[in-house]
Design a protein around this nucleic acid. Structure first.
Lengths: 243, 243
DNA sequence: ATATCTTGGTCTGATGGTCAGACCATAACC
DNA sequence: GGTTATGGTCTGACCATCAGACCAAGATAT
């Protein structure tokens, strides 16, 4: 049998980068610290606990911890593991963060406004009801961590309702990038900003109800406008903390 | 020093899955076969060539190949490696391709229209000149592979010009997904569609010049409209082949 | 204050994966 | 037919990971 005449012209294969278990553990721990699950100075789980959760040997965990110690992220104190008291690069609100946050919100705008309009057009009765229900669940006085959870579910429901899995996935990436951004985390978790954050939560509850209402009515134009208004408001309030 | 009072309540860490080099090689090869770079029956590169490209030892490559042989994807024939003649699940052009292509174009619409408008607003003089120059390089009678290369450069320049790296990256992913879609590849490379593909190339050249002109003029509204027109035309012509 | 538990520190030996390299037989190519 | 390319096989060295054991010190409970 002759080989077929036409294959796609293939690119050269990329080199394979070998990632050790210890490196993966290190990165996971770094991510969780950056995400705010372990604040500066706080204690990390014991090595044996980490072994059990990650499903790896203790030597691998110790290797990862040692790397984090070398990076200045973790210290061994009183026979316990702690995040260092002062994190330099991981969470300092420095210059350039405004730009990063602006880009994240701009990207959100590009995707979210159109996607919300699509959701208003294409949602099924069931997803419309679900979005309405989720929007009613936002309480102005809720705790930040609970708000984040509800916010995630609300926006995920809208992304699903737009009926385009690729778009929904891309949007998920953008939201993740925003919430994993050190700049954003710094704003959310710095003690100074607690009152402002509470204000954003209160404000968002109302905006979410407006978006949901437009989606339920199938009005894609109003839904898009509501999404744009919401984003503009959140961005304005977040960025006013940086100036 | 007391530990801070409030950490976010953290989820349990997920188990770390250890992936060997051989498994990564196997998956890379599988992906390239599924993407249409190696058609059924066609020959794969030699082991030594794969070692060199992936940057790994031959034993690792051989392990990967053996796995693919066991999976029935690759066969050893006449002292050469070949994709098997009949692949079951990997690459059949089946129903559902219209939906896939529609979703890809919809996603492109959401991102590309706004991004082109942003590029018109924010491009520097240098990037405007570059985009104009690239748009003049499209020849109506060019070969498909050359057109794809030029098309990629043109759209990449616009993505860069919009000044938002995250958005540019997401857009790159969408374009890649489109060009790597087996359905799209089937349309492009099937012999029957050659005349239609040539028509799309001719049509695109003119559209690209319009987009570039609006960007050079800094007219974001016209740029967005031109981008939307271009996408609608390409989608219409591509999908008319499926019906 | 004492006993117990928890935690980090250190070490061992086994196993699997990966590497570079060598050599051979066979097929492909000129 | 001669040369080159390719897959097949093997070797020895190294690295990463594992499970497990034992010890010292600190934390916690009584």
């Amino acid at each position: 049998m002759d080989a077929p005449a036409s294959n796609l012209e293939r690119p050269r294969f990329d080199r394979i980068e070998y990632t050790t278990v210890a490196e993966q553990v290190r990165d996971r721990l770094m991510d969780s610290i950056r995400d705010g699950y372990f604040l500066p100075g706080s204690q990390l789980p014991a090595e044996r606990q980490l072994c059990e959760e990650f499903g790896v040997a203790r030597t691998s965990v110790r290797e990862a911890i040692q790397q984090l110690v070398s990076l200045g992220v973790v210290q061994r104190k009183s026979s316990r593991l702690h995040v260092v008291d002062y994190l330099g690069v991981v969470s300092s609100p420095a210059a350039g963060h405004e730009r990063e946050i602006r880009e994240l919100f701009e990207t959100r705008r590009v995707i979210e406004i159109s996607m919300t309009g699509l959701a208003a057009q294409k949602a099924t009765d069931r997803t419309r009801a679900e979005i309405a229900c989720l929007s009613e669940g936002f309480d102005s006085d809720v705790e930040l961590s609970q708000f984040r959870d509800q916010d995630h579910h609300f926006h995920a429901a809208i992304a699903t309702a737009c009926g385009n899995p690729l778009l929904a996935e891309l949007y998920g990436r953008v939201l993740r990038a925003l919430f994993e951004s050190p700049a954003f985390a710094a704003l959310l978790y710095t003690q100074i900003n607690r009152a402002s954050v509470q204000e954003i939560i209160k404000n968002s509850a109302e905006h979410h109800r407006r978006i949901a209402s437009a989606i339920v009515d199938g009005d894609s134009k109003i839904a898009s406008i509501a999404a744009g208004d919401h984003l503009a408001e959140v961005e304005r309030r977040m960025l006013s903390q940086l100036i």
